[in-house]
Amino acid sequence: MASFTLDVNGKSHAIDADPDMPLLYALKNDVGLNNPQFGCGLAQCGACTVHLNGQPIRSCVTPVSAVGDGKVVTMSGLGTPEKPHPLQTAYVAEQVTQCGYCINGWVMTAAAFLRDNKKPTDEQIKQALHGIKCRCGTHMNILRAVKRAASMMG
């Protein structure tokens, strides 16, 4: 066990954990967030995606000891109903989800991609989201939402 101070969504959290414990469990059980989610523990699906210093990472395979002073932003830190991120607005407008368990992977990956890539083509969006899983098959909705958000972030 070791002590860590995590910067999550702009707040500092002191936790005691095994250095090799993945960040996911710190976020869910120590910080107490309802997101991200455990999908595979193998970095294959995206359900656990968060931003570390602005870049999407898979928190299910990132040891808490590797986070250091890095700034962690989860999907709940992306925006609020009062001040939503364009992707959150677009998700609601396009009625994207079915079960919604996959949502962190798509939104957090797309958020970093749209921040760095203005006016992307459909093909670029698809490539950016390659590998992320949705089992309910809401891909058409997801694409519409990401395109809507892209136009909002223009």
Partner: peptide, 13 residues
């Protein structure tokens, strides 16, 4: 959808 997009609704997990 909104509670899912803003992570305010719990999943069973």
């Amino acid at each position: 959808i909104a509670p899912k997009a803003f992570c305010t609704a719990p999943f069973v997990t």
